[in-house]
């Protein structure tokens, strides 16, 4: 009887448990150590090896507001790292939500000394999905006419560093779906391309990491946390990792409990 009841447990009890398991470690951090993945190190080392005098990077902001809690912290960390390394970066958005989210990050970095138009530019949104990626790959310098702040892109000093796509030392694409890594590897096979992915998309992208079509990958919020640790600047993503751990434990426990209740009940009812 108890096993049957256990299977029909009110879903709101599960929701409450979820809230408790996630909120408690956010309020009282445990400090579980985080191991750093090789793909995160690839991104970090690629950027660290660049030359600020000659190299320019693209940080494509193709993440929607829905997936932003997973990918946004990656963008924050990498943008900050590039600012510290003094490597200029262009930020095109292939998803309409991108530019306004990036604006917050750039404003924070400007307060620390980033010079807009010289060190970074928020190029704005270009519609069209894969066609937009192709247009950017064909003409990275001229495809955006005005940036998100209304400046003429061609007049900005940073744009004088880029003429064609091969002038870009690294493209790091932060994405929550389409357009994403598949569009980039189809349209820009000669570009050194890395991906900042929403966790859900990671498994599908792994074959492209193994085939070296994707060089460096940040895997969701954990990727952001690992990057913060590599920078030796633990911030918001690191703070959430304890909660991530407890959340996983809870769900594993629920799966085990649910299955135990199901099979014990089945066995008992057979008797």
């Amino acid at each position: 009887m108890i096993w049957k009841k256990l299977q029909d447990i009110d879903r709101r009890i599960i929701y409450t448990l979820m809230i408790v398991f996630l909120l408690y470690p956010m309020m009282f951090p445990i400090g579980i150590p985080i191991e750093i993945d090789a793909t995160t190190k690839d991104v970090f080392n690629t950027l660290k090896a660049l030359n600020p005098a000659t190299d320019t990077v693209v940080l494509a902001a193709s993440y929607s507001v829905g997936g932003a809690p997973d990918v946004g912290p990656q963008f924050d960390a990498v943008a900050k790292h590039l600012f510290e390394l003094k490597i200029p970066f262009l930020v095109p958005s292939f998803v309409s939500d991108g530019p306004a989210q990036v604006e917050r990050v750039l404003a924070r970095l400007e307060s620390l000394g980033l010079v807009y138009g010289v060190d970074a530019v928020n190029l704005g949104f270009i519609t069209g999905g894969e066609a937009a990626v192709k247009a950017f790959v064909d003409n990275p310098r001229t495809v955006f006419i005005k940036d998100f702040r209304g400046n003429v892109v061609a007049d900005l000093p940073i744009m004088q560093r880029v003429d064609k796509v091969t002038d870009l030392a690294y493209v790091l694409d932060f994405q929550t779906g389409n357009p994403g890594y598949a569009d980039w590897i189809r349209q820009a096979p000669g570009v050194k391309y890395g991906a900042g992915l929403v966790t859900v998309s990671v498994p599908a992208a792994i074959p492209f990491v193994n085939s070296k079509q994707i060089v460096g990958m940040l895997k969701g919020l954990r990727g952001a946390a690992e990057y913060e640790l590599l920078m030796e600047r633990p911030a918001l993503a690191v703070a959430k990792m304890d909660a991530q751990s407890l959340g996983h434990l809870l769900i594993v426990a629920l799966i085990i409990l649910g299955n135990t209740a199901h099979f014990v009940d089945k066995k008992l009812s057979k008797k």
């Binding site: 829905g66 946004g72 919020l221 959430k240």
Partner: peptide
Amino acid sequence: VMGRISLLLGAFE
């Protein structure tokens, strides 16, 4: 699962 928990954490924050 990992991705959805991340989204929840972002909202809780």
